[in-house]
């Protein structure tokens, strides 16, 4: 099956471009640290607060950080005119979308782990109380974000105000992911049982939007 081969090729290419240019990921890590520190200082946190109000704020910090990376998903294609490579592929272009979303997912997972580490350092968050749930929220949340983020950045890549457009398009749609992920991590940190409803809803959400991305991308590239 050459669909997955194409997806893998796109993913590898994107990671290579990321490593070679090194700035996309670097910017995201610095930005994430800045936002977490800012939150901690401005809200004059104490360890106790960290579990309560602060944890969902981490997800907001992660969302803003991810914007930097997602906004540039198709920058190379748009600037170097390299869209041709992704349009003239001998498979359904949904595979190209999955490759791109995969590359974004890996970048987001790195940023997510980094944000989690920052939470431990600055906010004394103890992830070991329910590491499985926290990991699940992290992975499912990142999948939802990379899926929607990749599709919407393809949508806004050629638009005029694309810096404004991506957040305006993304934020209302991504709200459920934030709510579900924050719920899962909230329960995990508090040491309570896994929030099944949120986990199930988040998994379903990821699946639905991955499907729309896969089907929609094909009619998007050669509009």
């Amino acid at each position: 099956m050459n669909g997955p081969r194409v997806a893998l090729a796109v993913l590898r290419k994107d990671l290579l471009v990321d490593l070679r240019s090194r700035d996309r990921l670097g910017h995201m890590l610095i930005f994430a640290a800045l936002v977490v520190v800012l939150i901690s200082i401005v809200l004059r946190t104490s360890a106790a607060d960290a579990r309560g109000a602060l944890l969902p704020l981490l997800w907001i910090a992660f969302l803003f950080t991810s914007l930097l990376g997602l906004a540039r998903s198709f920058q190379a294609e748009t600037e170097d005119g390299a869209w041709t490579n992704l349009i003239l592929v001998p498979v359904d272009r949904g595979w190209v979308f999955l490759g791109k979303a995969g590359a974004n997912l890996l970048a987001l997972l790195v940023v997510e782990a980094w944000t989690a580490l920052l939470a431990v350092i600055f906010l004394d968050v103890d992830w070991t109380r329910a590491p499985g749930a926290a990991l699940l929220a992290g992975v499912l949340g990142a999948i939802g974000l990379s899926t929607l983020g990749t599709l919407l950045s393809a949508l806004s890549a050629s638009a005029r105000f694309r810096e404004f457009l991506l957040p305006i398009l993304l934020f209302p749609l991504i709200l459920p992911v934030l709510v579900f992920a924050a719920d899962i991590t909230g329960e995990a940190i508090a040491g309570r049982a896994l929030a099944e409803r949120s986990a199930g809803a988040l998994a379903l959400y990821d699946w639905v939007f991955l499907l729309i991305g896969y089907l929609g991308f094909d009619s998007l590239v050669e509009a």
Binding site: K13, V17, A76, D80, G81, A82, N85
Partner: peptide
């Protein structure tokens, strides 16, 4: 008009 190649690679 463009090479459609990735400059960093």
């Amino acid at each position: 008009p463009t090479t459609a190649l990735y400059g960093e690679l």
